[in-house]
């Protein structure tokens, strides 16, 4: 099998400043007092794993285990302090649906803006416009500014845009917890369709049931350290017992 994502010895350190220094004056005052202390916080410590093409990886762990940090590094949003990440193919990040929405613009305009952020061409979006609206079930609200949308509508639109393209790798972070039961099922179905097409998927969720249903491998992070990586059933059982 072909390795599409390779994470090698990735560590992420943050400087936890006691208070954030935001102004020149504070900065200089603190510098003079020698109080520019940096409390180092290690969010990820020497994590390595490989993802093969077609894998469905679930990432589990308690709050603060570094799951979201890991996803951000995979998506290229964060630069790891050390170690390296190599990714082959395109990534569709679903870290937070509707991250690029402008509340003043209408759903139609936001589809083009958000699509452009994900790297789609205008022509591509025009061709798939109906499909996106169909999936999001927003026919009546195409020309309404999204600031008037409910959070469910927001999530539906965001999910529809992000999954319209067949990316090589899809990253999903807890987004499925929004929306009603019916829409969650619809999203899961769409993810299944993508799985059947051979898309590699990385999911973070506290919904252990969903991870068990979808994933073939699980990464368990605990306080920034890789605790285990491998068979879904085995790790999920251990994880549940741990709770």
């Amino acid at each position: 099998m072909e390795t599409v994502v390779s994470v090698k010895n990735v560590s992420m350190k943050f400087n936890l400043m006691e208070e954030k220094v935001d102004t020149f004056k504070e900065y200089i005052v603190k510098l003079l007092k020698g109080k520019l202390l940096f409390n180092e916080f290690v969010a990820l410590n020497d994590v390595s794993f490989d993802i093969e093409k077609g894998d469905i990886i679930g990432i589990v762990g308690f709050n603060g285990a570094g799951k979201s940090t890991m996803l951000k590094i995979l998506a290229g949003v964060l630069e790891p302090s050390c170690g390296s990440v190599t990714v082959k193919g395109t990534i569709a990040p679903l870290i937070e649906v509707g991250a690029g929405f402008d509340p003043e613009l209408t759903a139609r305009e936001n589809i083009f803006l958000n699509g452009a952020i994900l790297g789609h061409s205008r022509q591509f979006l025009q061709e798939h416009f109906e499909e996106i609206i169909d999936f999001a079930e927003l026919h009546k609200f195409v020309n309404v500014p999204v600031k008037n949308f409910s959070s469910g509508m927001y999530a539906r639109l965001g999910f529809a845009i992000a999954t319209v393209v067949d990316a090589d790798i899809l990253i999903v972070d807890e987004v499925l917890s929004v929306g009603d039961y019916r829409f969650q099922e619809k999203c899961e179905k769409r993810i299944r369709d993508m799985i059947n097409k051979g898309t590699t998927i990385i999911i973070v969720s506290h919904d252990i049931g969903m991870i068990e249903r979808l994933c073939n491998k699980v990464l368990w992070l605990d306080c920034g350290v890789k605790k285990d990586f491998g068979e879904t059933q085995k790790i999920c059982d251990e994880y549940k017992n741990c709770q």
């Binding site: 951000k72 998506a75 949003v77 990534i91 990040p93 870290i95 991250a99 690029g100 952020i117 994900l118």
Partner: peptide, 9 residues
């Protein structure tokens, strides 16, 4: 910022 935190651009 909301964009930069979520998507690589």
């Amino acid at each position: 910022s909301s964009l930069i935190k979520k998507v690589y651009v």
